[in-house]
Design a protein around this nucleic acid. Structure first.
Lengths: 141, 141
DNA sequence: TGCAAAACCTATTAAACCGATAGGTTATTA
DNA sequence: TAATAACCTATCGGTTTAATAGGTTTTGCA
């Protein structure tokens, strides 16, 4: 059986795991992509692309060459998981019409007030959001 | 932009909407697929397959021929949304390894105790689960 | 100065899945 | 007997995911 929707992508999963590794090292001791891909059993090339997007978004610094690698630019307690989730996964919501950061109207709905599932999905969004908002990269261990 | 994962499938969305329509009618006045597909702006053929799976799972009864259609087999207050979600969407969890009904171990994880994101995902699952458990088809309106 | 390490970049792929469509058959009612 | 509506099987195009391939650039060090 397959579980596509409603599930975390491997991209996000691997990204969170990588961040938890990086949170255990300071910026003077960068961690290489290979180190993380080995210890977390993640495809090297796939992880590479994830770390690059985390760097481009401003969460990671990098150092090339021998002794190089990636490191957190802020202390892990200062990085809420909402930010990471939104970057890697996208909206924290079960429907685009209840997403705060990636809102999109539904094709099939006339209005959101009369939609039979809108309010329920807002409840789910809020409860999930509260968890991610109250946890940071430092909680990944 | 596209939002695949972490999102409800249209199948589930349409299924919930259809149930909310059926909840407004008693079993002596079945509602046709066409009526629902028109009022909810859902593809007829797609909705058809959804209603059939709801019937096969024991939630709906059906009546063929003129005056026929679908109707709820129980009163809407007695159908918790957890059941519907699991049928149409699958696991109520962000990872198979934290799913209660569709559990699957991760390939990359050594153990769930040491997994850096396992506990967090359990929290999300529990909060989502609580909402769906405390709501029924009768709440869809 | 040259070699190795490691980040960085672009492109491509195979498989899977979603959402929808097509074209029927069967059962029921009037 | 004709219309209605559920029911069934199969297929399809498009999109996305996750991974792979094959490079270039920068840095440290012997």
């Amino acid at each position: 059986m397959a579980y596509l929707c409603f599930m975390l992508s491997k991209k996000t999963k691997y990204g969170l795991k990588a961040l938890s590794v990086l949170a255990k090292h300071d910026r003077d001791n960068p961690v290489t992509t290979l180190t993380i891909s080995d210890s977390e059993h993640i495809s090297y090339k796939f992880l590479e692309s994830i770390l690059i997007s985390l760097r481009k978004a401003g969460y990671l610094g990098s150092k090339k060459g021998k002794g190089g690698g990636y490191y957190l630019l802020q202390s892990p307690e200062k990085i809420p998981l909402t930010d990471i989730m939104r970057l890697l996964e996208g909206p924290i919501a079960l429907l685009p019409c209840v997403s705060l950061n990636y809102y999109e109207a539904c094709d099939d709905c006339q209005s959101e007030e009369t939609c039979s599932i809108h309010r329920l999905m807002i409840k789910v969004r809020d409860s999930t959001l509260e968890i991610f908002r109250n946890h940071t990269v430092a909680d990944l261990k």
